[in-house]
């Protein structure tokens, strides 16, 4: 789960970055960059849940 989280974070950035090349409209770019940030936050959440479950198991 942790690895998937990290991959999602990198993918989110790639989504945001490539949208700047592929899209010209400001609205389209903004939508894709927001989507990229949301994907990154999803990845961060997955990593956080992974570490939380590790901690719960340890207790």
């Amino acid at each position: 789960m942790s690895l998937i989280g990290y991959l999602l974070m990198v993918s989110g950035w790639l989504l945001a970055f490539t949208s700047l090349f592929l899209l010209a409209g400001l609205g389209q770019r903004l939508a894709f960059v927001i989507a990229g940030v949301l994907v990154e936050l999803l990845g961060l959440t997955l990593i956080a849940l992974h570490f939380r479950s590790l901690q719960r198991d340890a207790e």
Partner: peptide
């Protein structure tokens, strides 16, 4: 335009989370 300013800041934020955090970790 305001959306363009927000977009530029979001690109920086996306880079911090998607590039710098994996690198740091």
């Amino acid at each position: 335009p305001r959306p363009a300013l927000i977009l530029a800041q979001l690109i920086g934020i996306a880079t911090l989370l998607g590039v710098m955090f994996p690198l740091i970790h």
